[in-house]
Amino acid sequence: MDLKNKKILIEGIGGIGGIIASRLLAVGYDCTLITGNKEITSQIQSSGIIEHLENDKQKIVFPQNVYTTLSELDETMKFDFALLAMKAESVVEAAKSTIPYLFSHGFVVTLQNGIVEDLIVKEIDDGRLISAVMAFGATMIQLGQYKQTSPGSIFIGELHGELSTRLTQLGEILHEVLPVSLSENINGVLWNKLAINATAKALGAISGQTWGEMLDTKPKRTLFLKIYAEVVNASKANNVKLEKITVNPLLLYLPVNAGFFTRFKKDIFLRMAARKYKDIKSSSLQSLLRGRKTEIDYLNGFVISESEKHGLKAPFNKILLEMVKEIENGKREIDPKNIDEIIQKLVV
């Protein structure tokens, strides 16, 4: 089968969606885009999708079909699958609304930060859903212009773990974007990414700092490890086996009863990570700076709810959630002192 005969719908042409669309269109895939934003639609229709590459080079592709909303599509249009790349708060309704535009064998693919799959399968059959983890960074630097900001790969998996034919085909298609891993435990991959996102995205959002800046002292690194541990504890309570994305996810897990040597090792691992990703800024911070809501409810909020289901407490995630909400509502400023405040309250 020629996979380039597949009809692909991409919804949400922000950083991740823009990079995926750019690279699939460049090699000849039939992609229809739903931007969710009239200005982005207009810009792409007039100037194409511009991807910024290394050495100040650019790649420009001109998609034939670019719309702002699903409702603009002809009702006879059908697709083999839809990549859902919008923010987490919009994905459930998007999945539900997309089903009528799919062939009977069609399915949606979730690309969100956080874990949204349980919410989606309340609205659509779980056989019409594949989960994906975007283990790389990307941003829209101007309307219709995109750049990959960090190296990485893509993980995809069926909810029940089977290595199906459709999963293999999807992997071959997405390999045009970045290397792809087929997972038999996609929930473990999702929880691994959640552990990093709930920690790093939230700390970056409240402080305005890069990885390197927000982890430049031992108390800050200890805070990071404690937040991360709450996520891992929630995953353990849910009987989730965490899967490796780049490194063993337990390298940064600090047990409550950890001794001096274990704490020393974890601090060293985190210092190495901070050095490697020192210039990376939180996408949640970028949302706040643009005056937009973050995905905090699907990150730290999810950790809190899952912890409480099993009688666990998550005080670090709770205070992060509260601080981000205060920033969203204009009641708190983005400031490195916010991290110091948490350290004084909960770490010291």
Rank of each mutant, 00 (worst) to 15 (best):
A195P: 06
E51D: 03
E72N: 03
E158H: 03
E326V: 00
S207K: 02
L84D: 01
T294S: 10
K122S: 08
F264I: 07
E117S: 12
S22P: 02
V61S: 02
A88L: 06
L346C: 00
L312A: 04
S131C: 07
S90C: 09
I334K: 05
V240Q: 06
Q142W: 12
K278N: 15
L167D: 14
F264M: 13
K38A: 15
I40M: 02
L194C: 14
N248A: 12
A195T: 11
I304R: 08
A198Y: 01
N248F: 13
N113G: 02
L174S: 04
M1I: 04
D216R: 08
D56G: 02
P249V: 11
E328Q: 14
A200N: 09
T168C: 12
K337A: 13
V66W: 08
V109Y: 08
S131Q: 14
P100G: 10
Y253V: 11
T69P: 05
T76P: 00
E117I: 01
G28N: 13
A95G: 04
Q112V: 08
I115T: 08
A202K: 02
S181N: 14
S131W: 07
E341V: 00
G259H: 09
I156T: 02
I339D: 00
W211K: 08
G259C: 07
P179I: 12
P100W: 12
V92I: 15
K218W: 03
E72Q: 10
M77T: 15
K201W: 08
E230S: 04
P255L: 09
A26F: 05
G18E: 04
A205T: 12
I124G: 03
A94M: 14
S207A: 08
L25M: 04
L321F: 14
T139H: 09
N37Q: 01
F136M: 14
R166K: 13
S283R: 01
T165M: 13
P63Q: 15
V247G: 11
E213H: 00
N55A: 10
L203G: 05
K265H: 10
K265A: 11
L289Q: 09
T98A: 10
L223A: 03
N233I: 11
I196G: 10
I186R: 06
I304L: 04
G114T: 01
L289V: 12
E89L: 13
A274I: 03
I196E: 12
I124R: 08
V324S: 00
S150Q: 09
H52P: 01
V61T: 13
I245T: 12
T110A: 04
F261P: 08
K122A: 13
R292Y: 06
